[in-house]
Nucleic acid binder design. Structure first.
Length: 603
DNA sequence: GTCAGTCAGGGGTAT
DNA sequence: ACCCCTGACTGACCT
């Protein structure tokens, strides 16, 4: 996506808001990434003019010559974020709502100062809004209706009811459907809510979501099968859909023990709709996918055509050689499921497929790897690694092309024969997996990173250290720089109306429509179980000190402070920058945008 | 917090 | 129908 941001080196004209947020794919390496200088000949709607660091909102407004590059409907309506009931041209509520100017969060971690003004400010902020930003958001707050909902997400209140109403009338005659609706009734029966409940139906939400995608983008995805844009649009749509499904399913049925797989559901839907990239299998590099690209789900590998099987580790295809067709391996995923040997970053010892309850056979993927050894074709390798920043998750890194050098059979721990394949990485490919291996070392011992000036420039102000690094010249740090973990006000802020907290003793849970904080967020918890924002919203209400939920409540994500390993680093020719050692999922909280608050006059 | 165990899944290939 | 280096969830275990 960084390439979409512009091609010239002139500074931004200032005619649009740089603080707006994009839903972008995470950066893939520790190499500084800047907007591409190369001309873009894609069929996708991409900007023609711009500059490095130019940042445009998904929904505009766009500078001259800067076309929208967001796959959802945009209209002049959507550019007014405080508008009630914003609708797409087709009359469908926007799924990806316009995001207003970024709002600095007040720190919940620092104890309130003793002055009355700032104490009030703290209380106000902790109720889910931020001091000075409250003034910015007053319009929105005034647009709340009498039920206490904001209209911003397009799914609240009366619209909610109409959006979801027909679902209750829809007969689901499947077994699963009956089971679900039964449990849904039980859940609802236990609740005594004083307002009309929204009816959550995944199918309807999915249909609304799909309807909100600009058909031109879907058309372009089907025609342009294999480009950077098609891969990135596909992944962006997948992740937005996955998070939305996850949110709706949780709110609909929060019964413990129900295993939900929004990744599979979102993936299968996009597959059937043709929203995918490189649907035709091929040997070698995949257009639009670069060495070092990271993925968070196996389904993403399917969708961009990197590795087709949703679970299996070996992907292969039949290749006609002279008269006969023989299977050749095209890609493998090394994920630690077998006794692989990954000592060296450029060499991978990969075990054949077949669970160790009997001798493995030379068939399917194993046969394909054997044939590829003899034919000498390139094999794509994806490495699965533990996501240190998110212990429940895994990260898949595309590590480029390898060749199979030899194969043998070995006795596994269980005593059965397993096939082993030695794969060697082709030279002159950018570092990918090895970068992540290095980061794991740095996390344990930051001083092992080359060019470290300070292991923690926050001096302990954050939960995790932020490294200061310069491996390009001798400068010892950015000038005129003081680290502030939270907002600093030059004068006290006037208090605003008090907020009512929730009474969720054990923490706010999805589906609890009695929760005041969930109601304020449009009857959906804004965060997933691992703290990722599940829906595009311009304003989130977190729990505060007047709430009875604990500090680890799911609705207190930003209050947990920085969790990612960041580093401030020197670039070759563009000054100092900030990057992350940890992979950052779309929607994840990174850090508070803190600093000294100045008024217009001072600015 | 970590780990192993459980289980419902989807895409693709083989039959 | 079958295969498979998923991923969400649970509960035992440890610190």
């Amino acid at each position: 996506m960084e390439q979409s941001l512009g091609q010239q080196s002139n500074p931004a004209s200032g005619s649009f808001d740089k603080s707006r947020i994009l839903n972008v794919k995470p950066l893939r390496s520790l190499v500084p990434v800047f907007p591409s200088q190369s001309p873009n000949s894609s069929s996708f709607p991409t900007p023609q003019a711009g500059a490095p660091f130019v940042c445009a909102s998904p929904s505009g407004p766009f500078p001259p010559g800067f076309a929208p590059f967001y796959p959802f409907f945009t209209s002049s309506e959507s550019q007014r974020p405080f508008e009630q009931n914003s609708q797409s041209p087709s009359g469908v509520p926007f799924v990806g709502n316009p995001i207003s100017a970024a709002v600095p969060l007040n720190s919940f971690r620092t104890p309130p100062p003793s002055t009355a003004g700032t104490a009030n400010l703290h209380r106000e902020a902790a109720n889910g809004d931020a001091g000075s930003s409250r003034r910015n958001t007053r319009n929105r707050l005034q647009s709340q209706n009498h039920s206490g909902f904001t209209e911003e997400d397009g799914y609240s209140n009366s619209q909610n009811q109409s959006s979801f109403r027909h679902i209750t009338d829809t007969e689901d005659t499947t077994k699963a459907g009956r089971r679900k609706s039964k449990s849904q009734k039980q859940t609802r029966g236990a609740l005594d809510v004083g307002f009309a409940l929204p009816e959550f139906d995944v199918d309807s939400v999915v249909n609304e979501f799909l309807a909100s995608i600009n058909p031109l983008v879907i058309d372009a995805l089907r025609k342009d099968d294999g480009s950077k844009e098609s891969a990135e649009y596909t992944l962006m749509i997948f992740d937005l859909l996955r998070r939305r499904i996850s949110q709706v399913e949780e709110a609909k049925d929060s019964t413990p023990g129900v295993i939900r797989r929004p990744d599979l559901k979102a993936g299968a839907l996009l597959m059937t709709k043709g929203i995918r990239s490189n649907s035709k299998k091929r040997i070698g590099a995949v257009p639009g996918v670069q060495v070092g690209d990271i993925f968070f789900f196996r389904m993403e590998l399917c969708l961009v055509g990197l590795h087709a099987p949703s679970m299996a580790g070996i992907d292969y295809m039949g290749i006609k050689i002279s008269q006969e067709e023989e299977p050749l391996a095209v890609s493998i995923v090394s994920s630690g499921g077998y006794e692989d040997d990954v000592e060296d970053g450029d060499v991978l010892i990969y075990s054949g497929q077949g669970k160790e309850v009997k001798d493995q056979k030379l068939e399917r993927g194993n046969l394909a790897l054997e044939k590829s050894l003899h034919r000498g074709n390139d094999v794509r390798v994806v490495r699965g690694i533990k996501d240190l920043a998110n212990p429940t998750g895994k990260v898949y890194v595309y590590d480029g092309l390898y060749k199979i050098q030899e194969s043998w059979t070995d006795k596994g721990k269980s005593g059965f024969n397993i096939f082993k394949y030695k794969l060697v990485r082709l030279p002159s490919q950018p570092a990918a997996y090895m970068t992540w291996r290095s980061i794991q070392q740095w996390s344990e011992k930051p001083t092992s990173r080359i060019g470290v000036i300070l292991p923690d420039l926050t001096s302990g102000a954050e939960n995790v250290p932020v490294c200061l690094v310069n491996d390009v010249d001798s400068e010892k740090g950015p000038p005129y720089f003081t680290y502030l973990p939270s907002l600093k006000y030059s004068k006290p802020i006037n208090p605003v109306e008090p907020c009512t907290g929730c009474i969720c003793i054990g923490g706010c849970l999805p589906g609890n429509f009695n929760c005041h904080c969930i109601q304020k967020n449009g009857s959906c918890l804004p965060y997933s179980a691992n703290g990722v924002l599940v829906n595009l919203k311009s304003l989130i209400y977190e729990c505060g000190p007047s709430c009875q939920c604990p500090a680890n409540c799911r609705n207190r994500v930003s209050q947990g402070g920085l969790k990612l390993r960041l580093e401030v680093f020197k670039t070759k020719d563009k000054g100092w920058g900030l990057r992350s050692w940890d992979p950052i999922r779309a929607g994840a909280f990174i850090c508070e945008y803190a600093g000294e608050v100045i008024d217009n006059a001072k600015a």
